[in-house]
Write a protein that binds this DNA or RNA. Structure first.
Length: 720
DNA sequence: TTCCAACTGTTTTTT
DNA sequence: ACAGTTGGAA
């Protein structure tokens, strides 16, 4: 064994990496080198000959983490990582189901529904069964179905003691039937199917249990019941399960994560000792002391205390603002000061509990001319135009996909209205056929009938042409002939959508490039693989090492990241901890863990801020400081003074004070609050702005013509 | 089919 | 406050 692999590991890390063949629980604190231990363990197992690459099964939650793991393994070992089973829960389940689709009762090209698709499917189901969506809200039913699946329960296994639950149970069964008919599978179904497959098929089960001698799990505290059951089944009696997690960073109970899995694991797998990684390599002492003190207030913990070899560093800065507005101004000032000290903006994070809080912060940053990037929001494959394009492709791959059919049969509009669609759906139901097959019967009369036949012919033609084309050209061809391009060209706000559609072709080209090495480029398989990729990997959402911009995100989104300086804003009772958390069982403890995650993101400097008043849901609300602030030792805190009162008093009491920084670019002639005149609309005041350069627009409240958005490049605005 | 007014629900989110 | 959705009228 070359020492290089194990070099530089501390004793606990080394112990974890070189554990004998037995199941182990690694309690890895924030910044304790968790990913390093996990990947080094894999490399060690392979390099020491205890295991071949194909005997490893390593699972994570996010694509980003999976990719990171593969990259690191590849850097440590001269092996081809392609054959290794390293991926996300859903990615690996998908892989197994594709390999054994017949045994799993699925068609070869089964499609994967994302949450939005699933919600659509539920709505469709309710409509088809004539069920009042008011009484059975689709979202709630979706939640019910996913909740059941995530516990490993099929509809018939649910115990229903009241009529309402019984009805939901029936609808769950009907939903599963509908999915089966259409050849689609939702996220939870991927795992449940795979679990049931292994449970039912002893031959397959033994095959995989034999093969995977080492099962490694990242972020174990985030696993749900079904994931745990699946792992248990996969591991069997012989595999060594290496579970890495941190109960103090469990912040996803609200979506089914079961921290209890850690205790169950300890028992079920006869874990002999828990290895604790407590040395933190990220933060200075004061920050860790604060985090430790805070989390100490939680009752249900496995217990762990982070320490560092570094000094205590700077005190934690605490700022009380009179309003959310002032809080934002404070953060802007401090970010600028840090920038002057040489800290990169991309090394600063501005965190908040809920997305709604970003608006005012963005506004302040924009006006100060500080570049920023907000994480969260719509992802690439979730955009409307991309969804439409994918629906065409899905229909080409699988005509029975009713969801895809409904999405595009009249988009762009081809005169197939709701009326005709209802008729078609009626035929489909009577004949027990998919919409596609119902349409093929040609029983629809009139104009709509002709249009429907034309649509069928269009998709058939697309399928015909596509079979001989490389994937990117298939998409290009489809975009043209479906009329999507023409439709968005005609739409006034369609330019960006067209760009995205173009980007879809690029994404496909990139995908082909990456996957043609291990797969002969048989076109239909390539298309199916790309569609899977689109559902399973909806595009970047979590923060990556960003461009030179201040990083804005929720605390949840910040998990796993680190920054030189971190601002945690909105530390008020009701906001953080969130008021809704008080009702839930263990809600407050989860909020505290969330705060713990937030604090431990900081390497060197930590700012905590709260505001005495804030606009919330359109109303001014007065709040008090978060209890979490009281739980931090005062000795670690340095209260920063508010700006000199004289300066505050001198500011005119106006919603937007003149003299703030330029609204568009630093040095621009325009700023918020400025009085202007327009040749047509007359006098007005600039009240908002967005974009930069030639895209810059300002919102002007005109005295006589109301509020309007104007492009600075074209509007002939004059300072009044 | 398109547009607008009224209405709704606003914690966190990956796959 | 505000964005997203729905229902009705044009």
């Amino acid at each position: 064994m070359p020492p290089s692999l194990l070099h530089g590991l501390n004793p606990e890390q080394l112990a974890a990496v070189t554990l004998p063949h037995e199941s182990a629980l690694i309690l890895a604190g924030a910044g304790s080198g968790k990913t390093r231990v996990l990947t080094t363990r894999i490399a060690y197992l392979i390099q020491s000959g205890q295991s071949g690459p194909s005997n490893i099964f390593a699972v994570t939650f996010t694509n980003k983490a999976a990719k990171e793991m593969l990259t690191r393994i590849a850097a440590m070992l001269p092996i081809n990582t392609r054959g290794m089973w390293v991926g996300t829960f859903h990615g690996l389940a998908n892989r197994m189901l594709r390999a054994h689709h017949r045994e799993a009762g699925l068609q070869a090209l089964f499609q994967i529904l994302d949450s939005a698709d699933q919600l659509g499917a539920v709505k469709r189901l309710l409509k088809a069964l004539n069920i009042d969506a008011e009484k059975y809200p689709p979202k709630q039913l979706q939640h019910f179905i996913n909740g059941a699946k995530e516990q490993g329960l099929r509809a018939h296994m649910i115990e229903a003691f009241d009529p309402y639950t019984r009805r939901q149970q029936e609808l769950y069964a009907a939903y599963d039937e509908q999915c089966q008919r259409e050849g689609v599978v939702d996220f939870a179904e991927l795992l449940l199917r795979c679990y049931e497959l292994l449970q039912r098929d002893a031959h397959l089960r033994h095959h995989y249990q034999e093969r995977f001698s080492h099962v490694l799990v990242d972020e174990f505290q985030d696993t749900n019941q079904l994931q745990y059951l699946w792992l248990k089944l996969l591991a069997g009696e012989r595999a060594a399960v290496f579970a890495v997690g941190d109960d103090d960073q469990s912040i996803y109970a609200f979506r089914g994560a079961r921290v209890g899995n850690m205790a169950d694991f300890e028992r079920d797998f006869q874990v002999r000792q828990i290895i604790r990684l407590e040395q933190n390599y990220r933060s200075h002492g004061n920050i860790l002391d604060a985090a430790n003190a805070l989390i100490h207030h939680n009752q249900s913990r496995l217990g762990k205390n982070l320490w560092t070899a570094e000094g205590s560093g700077e005190p934690i800065r605490l700022f009380e603002a009179s309003s959310d507005f002032e809080e934002a101004a404070f953060i802007v000032d401090e970010a600028k000061a840090l920038q002057r000290e040489g800290v990169l903006l991309s090394n600063m994070a501005l965190l908040y509990r809920s997305n709604a809080q970003s608006r005012i912060l963005e506004h302040a940053l924009f006006n100060a001319g500080i570049p920023y990037r907000v994480y969260g929001g719509l992802r690439f494959f979730e955009r409307q135009e991309i969804k439409h394009a994918l629906a065409y492709l899905r229909l080409v791959a699988n005509p029975d996909d009713d969801g895809a059919m409904l999405r595009v049969i009249n988009f762009p509009t081809r005169g197939i209205g709701v009326r005709s669609l209802e008729q078609l759906q009626e035929i489909a139901r009577q004949e027990n056929l998919s919409l596609w097959r119902a349409a093929q019967l040609g029983r629809m009369g009139g104009k709509a009938g002709t249009s429907i036949s034309a649509f069928i012919a269009l998709i058939d033609a697309l399928r015909e042409t596509c079979s001989s084309l490389p994937l990117p050209e298939q998409i290009d061809h489809m975009l043209e002939h479906s009329g999507l391009v023409a439709h968005y060209k005609a739409e006034k706000e369609g330019a960006e959508r067209l760009e995205n559609l173009n980007e879809l072709i690029n994404a496909a080209a990139g995908f082909v490039l990456e996957h043609s090495a291990d797969q002969a480029d048989a076109s239909p398989d390539m298309l199916a693989a790309f569609l899977t990729h689109a559902s399973l990997e909806a595009g970047e959402h979590q923060a990556a090492a960003g461009q030179e911009a201040l990083q804005l995100m929720t605390v949840h989104a910040a998990k796993g990241l680190e920054f030189h300086a971190v601002f945690i804003s909105g530390l008020e009772e009701g906001l953080f901890p969130h008021e809704n958390a008080a009702q839930e069982r263990d809600g407050l403890e989860e909020e505290r863990r969330l705060m713990y995650v937030a604090i431990t993101r900081a390497r060197r400097r930590l700012y905590l801020s709260f505001a005495d008043s804030r606009m919330l849901h359109g109303q001014l609300r007065y709040g008090i400081a978060s209890r979490f602030l009281d739980e931090l030792p005062t000795a670690l805190l340095k209260r920063l003074n508010r700006a000199a009162p004289s300066r505050v008093a001198e500011e005119p009491v106006m919603p937007f004070s003149p003299g703030k920084r330029a609204a568009t670019e630093p040095g621009s002639a325009w700023h918020i609050g400025q009085a202007v005149t327009h040749p047509k609309f007359g006098p007005g005041i600039i009240i908002n702005s967005e974009g930069r350069g030639t895209d810059a627009r300002v919102q002007v409240s005109f005295s006589h013509s109301g509020v309007k958005w104007l492009a600075l490049e074209y509007a002939r605005l004059e300072a009044a």
